[in-house]
Structures are given as structure tokens and as C-alpha cells.
Design a protein around this nucleic acid. Structure first.
Lengths: 209, 209
DNA sequence: AACAGAACTAGACATACTGTCTAGAAAGAA
DNA sequence: TTCTTTCTAGACAGTATGTCTAGTTCTGTT
């Protein structure tokens, strides 16, 4: 990451954006390497100088975005409020909104298996970490892996639905829905009281109906 | 479906099984039409006499299995008990167990986008029907589409996890976990009391830990 | 047992995409 | 300017697709 690589980074960025755009336009599967380099105004050979294949390109885009999310979310996990402005859940919804295109490609199965699986695995692993922290050593009455998987799966599903359908709902509203639909029962299943302060009564129902 | 088509059906079945087997062995994506017909001891040309492409073949397998499930589940939906031996949820878990291979290929994203999406859509649509029936005309405090999507997504996620990991858990146990993790909070989110009888206390915790 | 029609096969074909390689052009730092 | 990195154009072999044709093998019916 030294020397003369501003050019390289620019090319990287062009390729990533081209793949995202083309995927949304006509589906990840049907996008060829040729298509990508054409769109990015680059030679096809250049692609292979940067990435092994199309999946690698998408994967690297995912990694970048995941790093970004982690950076934003880690400090918030210190205090474990699931509600309010510092809620990690809210942050995740906001992050999804900001990176809507990429999330959509990956989540709605537009993209390829391996990448989606990577994201889901990442989510499940982190969910488990968080739930374990909540437990503080207590024993869960339910297998923690299932609960964590369910938690991550629900969150991703909620995001998927949101980005595909009613984007007019605010991130705050979605976070609240998720809280009511998932967080509460997850905590209860772990044998925990809602160890959470700041429960807003019931935020305004999202814009449209 | 007349005349001399026992042979056709047999060929169909051979192709389907070959695709399932090969997909589990080395991933749906990397299976070629040649592979399938080799495994089924058929000529490649024969494949195209039956299906347009690989996706079509998988899709037709899915349709068949979905029809089967619907047939079993429809009568159970008459009485709406979510618990007990006639619980539709339990039936779904059993169905998944019986058709484990196919479910795994589709759910774990081993297969192709379009097929998985079809299954998820099917699940969401039916979930919505069921929830509407539960509401009996009452107005839900939460957007019903989201709740239905969440419900379907959770169920599929649970099945996915189950088939991929601890198949030693019984279908009954999984149904109960699902009930506690999802059904309760879904009903509550719809503004419903648990309109359900027969809540078993807490079934034995699945075999392993 | 023989026949007719349906179902399958083998192989060839055009097409498309992949991933690699080479020789050389363009860009940018020194 | 000069030197190194980065990109390009085009060619290449390899593999999969989907279509087609002519011919073979089944199977139910007579």
C-alpha cells in the first residue's frame, strides 16, 4: 500500500462499482468479466491483474464494507443498550441503508452463494459473541448456536425485506420492529429479563402503510 | 400423462436424483449437464428433451416437493393449533427431514438463486395467508407483510440450521424451539394473545448438547 | 412375433465465457 | 528524460451450453 498505487485503487473502485451496477441491472449471474471491464473502461486482462474471478471481486467489496461496519459497531457494543441512538441494531440498519446496493445484491440472492454464506456466517458468529456477553456466564436453557443463528438470520431477513420493499420506512422504525419481533423473544429464550433500558413506547408507524 | 410414459417418468426421476446427489457431493454450481446425464446413465441430448436447463430441473423437483407438503399441511391448517401432533409447523419440520437432501441444496444456497427465491416467496406468501387467518379481520399493529416475511424467514432459517448441523435434534424439539423463538413474538406483534391450546411445559432438550 | 411410434443416443456444430499469456503502450515518480 | 509500474489488445486453449440430425432401442398393441 505504498509507492504508486493511487491508480490501482482507482481501478479497483471502478471494477467494484461496475459489478454492483451491472448486477442490479441484470443480475449478478449474467454479468461477465467482459461486461465489467467494458463498463469500467478497462481491458479485460486488467481484471485478472486485480482479481482471480468475479466472486473474488464481490467478496473483496463485501470485506471492505464489513470492516467499515465493525468499526462503527464495536464501540457501541460496550454498553449493551439495544435501544436508542447508540443501539448497534440501529447502526446496522443505517449501514445497510447507506450501502443499499451491495446489501441488496448479496442478500437477495442476486449474487453468488459463497459471498452470501460469508455474510451470514459473519453475522451468526458475531451474534453468538454478543449473546454470550449478555449471558455473562449464565447457562442458556436453549442451545446458544441456534439462538444466535436465528438472531442473525432474522436481522438479515429484515434488512433484505426492507431494502427490497418499503425503503420509505426509517431505519429507526425497522430497528424497532426487529426489536419487537426478535430481540425480545431471543432474550427470553436465553432466560434473560429484558436487561434493557429506554424502551420507547411505540414510535410512529413508518411513513406509508 | 397417458400412453407410454412410464419410461419418461423414470428418466425424470433419474435426472432429479443425479442432480441432487451430485450437488451434495460437489456443489450445484459445478455440476454440468454432462455430469448429470453420465450419473444417470443417459445421453446428454436426453436431458434437453426433458428440461430446458439445470435450473429447470431443480425447480421441477422443488415444485413436486412443495405440492407434497401443501397436500399434507392444508388439512392441518383448518384447526389452527400451532402445537401438538397436528401442528403444521411440526409437519413442516418432518417434511424437511424426509427430504433433507433437496432442502439442503436449496436452503443453504448451494443451489441457484431463482430456486431459493421461489421457495422463500412461497413460504412468505403462505405465512401471510395463515397470519391473516389468525387475525380474523382484526387490524394488526405491525405491517403484516413484514411479520409474514419474518415468520417465513425464521422458519426456513431454523430448518436450514437444523439440516446443516444437529440433525440429531428431533423434529418435535425443533418445532418447539421455533415456537418459542418466533411464533410467540409474532403473535404478540400481531396484537394477539396466544390463541393456542396445548402448550407443553418444556419437552426434553434434544439429544446432544 | 412383428410393427409403429415414442423415447433415447451419439456425435457434430456454433456460440460464449473463462483464465492465461505475450508484446507493447501509457502513466507517473524520480 | 528515464525507469518502473500498470494497463491494453489480441491470441490461445479449454470447457460448457444448447441445438440439430440420423439412427437405435425400447414398449405397448395388434
Amino acid at each position: 500500500m505504498q509507492k504508486q498505487d493511487r491508480r490501482v485503487q482507482r481501478t479497483d473502485q471502478l471494477l467494484r462499482q461496475a459489478l454492483i451496477d451491472l448486477s442490479l441491472e441484470r443480475g449478478y449471474d449474467s454479468v461477465t468479466v467482459q461486461d465489467i471491464t467494458d463498463r469500467a473502461n478497462l481491458g479485460r486482462a486488467t481484471f485478472y491483474l486485480h482479481y482471480k474471478d468475479k466472486d473474488q471481486l464481490l467478496l473483496s467489496t463485501l470485506e471492505a464494507i464489513v470492516d467499515d461496519l465493525l468499526e462503527r459497531i464495536t464501540p457501541e457494543l460496550k454498553n449493551m443498550f439495544m435501544y436508542g441512538e447508540t443501539s448497534p441494531i440501529l447502526t446496522i440498519f443505517r449501514h445497510a441503508q447507506e450501502n443499499r446496493d451491495l446489501y441488496r445484491i448479496i442478500l437477495s440472492g442476486r449474487a453468488v452463494v459463497s459471498v452470501e454464506r460469508r455474510l451470514r456466517e459473519f453475522a451468526a458468529v458475531n451474534a453468538q459473541k454478543i449473546l454470550l456477553a449478555f449471558l455473562r456466564g449464565k447457562r442458556s436453557p436453549m442451545p446458544i448456536e441456534i439462538v444466535a443463528y436465528h438472531f442473525a438470520n432474522s436481522l438479515l431477513g429484515m434488512i433484505d425485506w426492507w431494502l427490497e420493499n418499503e425503503t420509505t420506512y426509517s431505519a429507526e422504525y425497522m430497528a424497532q420492529l426487529f426489536y419487537e419481533l426478535s430481540v425480545t423473544s431471543v432474550l427470553r429464550s436465553l432466560g434473560l429479563q429484558l436487561a434493557v433500558t429506554e424502551i420507547k413506547p411505540t414510535p410512529p408507524p413508518g411513513p406509508s402503510s
